[in-house]
Design a protein around this nucleic acid. Sequence first.
DNA 1: TTACAATACCTTGTAAACCAATGTACTTAT
DNA 2: ATAAGTACATTGGTTTACAAGGTATTGTAA
Lengths: 109, 109
Amino acid sequence: MNISKELLKGTTKIMVLSVISDNELYGYQIIKLLKERSGNVLKMGEGTIYPILHFLESEKYLTSRWENIENGMKRKYYSLTPSGKKLLTQSLSEWKNFTDVVNTTLFNS
Amino acid sequence: MNISKELLKGTTKIMVLSVISDNELYGYQIIKLLKERSGNVLKMGEGTIYPILHFLESEKYLTSRWENIENGMKRKYYSLTPSGKKLLTQSLSEWKNFTDVVNTTLFNS
DNA sequence: TTACAATACCTTGTAAACCAATGTACTTAT
DNA sequence: ATAAGTACATTGGTTTACAAGGTATTGTAA
C-alpha cells in the first residue's frame, strides 16, 4: 500500500514536530522512526526531512546541538523550543479540523 | 477557522470527484457546494476548481456537456465516467489509509 | 442610469511541498 | 575490495493551490 505524494503535503512537518516532541532526535533517526511508526508506509527521503528541519530551526521552532559519537561520526540532535511546542499543539488541532472538514464534505451527501 | 493551503493539497481533487458522483454539476456550482458542505470552511477559488475539472476531463475521468440556460448564460455540466467512478472509489480508500497512517504516526508514541 | 455584485466561464504567474538524484565522508559487513 | 549502511547536505523538477487578471451576461441598489 502506498501513500500518494500529494496527500502527504503539509502533514510531514507535523509528523516531524510530533516525533521530536517525545525525544531529542537526529535527522537520520527521524526518517527511520517515521517509517517504523507508520508501519513501513512512510518512506521519507533525506531530501524531504533535512530541509524541513532546517526550516523549523530557522524559524526557532527547533534547536539543535552537534554530538560527536565514538566512531568519528557526527549527529545533529533537534529538540522543540517552547514556540515549537506551541506550534505542535496548534498543528495537531488544525490536522483534526482538516480531516473533519474533508470527511464531512466527502461523506455528507 | 481556516484550513491551511498545504494540508489541502491532494484532497481537492477527491472532493470534486465526490460531489460530482451524486449529481451532474457545473463548475461554479461545485465551488459553492464545497463551501456549503464544508460548513463554510472551504472557499475554493475558480483558479483551483476549473483546472482540476479540465485535467479530470482530459484524463477521461469526467465527461461534460454544455447547456444554454434561458437568460443567455451557458453552463458546462460534468459527470463521472466509469473510469472516474473507479478513481473515486480508489481515492476514498487512499484517503482513509492516509489519515489512518498519519494518526498512527502522530498519536502512537 | 450607473455602478456594483453575482453568475459563469477561462488563463497566467507564483509560492510551497515533496521527491529523486547527487554529493561528501566515514564505518561495517561480505 | 566492494557494497551497504550511517549521517549530513543541496539542486532541480513536478504538482498543487491561489491570487489576480480577463470575458460576458444578469440582477440589484444608489
